[in-house]
Design a protein around this nucleic acid. Structure first.
Lengths: 157, 157
DNA sequence: TTTTCATTTGAGAATGGTTCTCATCTTATA
DNA sequence: TATAAGATGAGAACCATTCTCAAATGAAAA
């Protein structure tokens, strides 16, 4: 139950927080912006403020309940922390996000950090590309050779 | 010569642009924020506006003269594009940035993208940790077990 | 050279995401 | 239930970045 998660994190159990966790749990899209969470709760008839959404997300993150990701540009997205660590690949056309985990990469990162004298604490790895949806695939071919713009900055969704 | 870079990029050769490229070339720290570039040029007696710095950096990036990186939090940092692609490791205490390149990771990324049906276009990989400077190393030990906060969000320099 | 015109510039206003402030409510504990 | 610490919503504030616009400048033509 979510109320226990909140108590464990030293947070009071309140309606807004429960609603947020519930939404993050059920949402079809696992990666949501603060704005999206706010809108969806409003639309569902909940009374909640945007400030509360941001505040709570920050607290959830500190408590390890939620992970924040800053994909290029615009807003941060939040996802419920379940299962083990993973990285992301984002479609530069439709914004679709897929997750992956690769032990070889993880291991490599550790040895690189060590070699450079760093005590590794965290990392972010995000791949950007065109996904297999017809529309996205199409623009892949269309733009061959156009070389305009940095793909990392496209699709600010 | 930098003026040729500008011409190649279809940009007019102007004093502010030349000064910026010059600074990016000579700067001791390869990774500079727009603000830092602005300040340093002002301090050097140059007449330049912050808007111009941002505008030019955007153009330089589009032209491939410069690379932008959004390390966690705050401002983007820019670095002159020389040599081949590389990723970064950032000290969460002092903000020091080191570069690295790992072909195994690169290869792995390509096959992950392929497996997921993506046409890989770009990626960002940033490691965060404590570097070997005495002060940074020290806080490494001090904070053992404190588990407070996400390392990715520390050191907003 | 001078003329011409598209570009670029600096200053400040505007923007957009996120955080802060504060007076008012709630929750958890006594 | 009384109480105090903590949480909330609304809107202001913040900060990095972008936009606007009139004035200045660079490059190509004359």
């Amino acid at each position: 139950m979510e109320s226990q998660d909140l108590r464990n994190a030293g947070l009071k159990v309140t309606a807004p927080r429960l609603k947020m966790l519930e939404l993050l749990e059920k949402a079809h899209d696992r990666h949501l912006t603060a704005e999206a969470i706010y809108r969806q709760l409003l639309d569902a008839g909940e009374e909640i403020g945007l400030a509360t959404v941001y505040r709570s997300l920050t607290q959830f993150e500190a408590a390890g309940l939620v992970t924040r990701n800053n994909f290029e540009g615009g807003q941060a997205v939040y996802e419920l922390e379940r299962g083990p660590h993973h990285d992301h690949i984002v479609c530069i056309h439709c914004g679709r996000v897929e997750e992956f985990f690769d032990e070889v990469i993880e291991k490599r990162q550790r040895s690189i950090a060590e070699k450079l004298g760093f005590n590794l604490r965290d990392h972010t790895l995000t791949l950007y590309g065109e996904c297999s949806k017809p529309a996205c695939k199409a623009s892949r071919d269309r733009s061959v050779g156009s070389n305009s713009g940095n793909p990392r900055h496209a699709a600010k969704k």
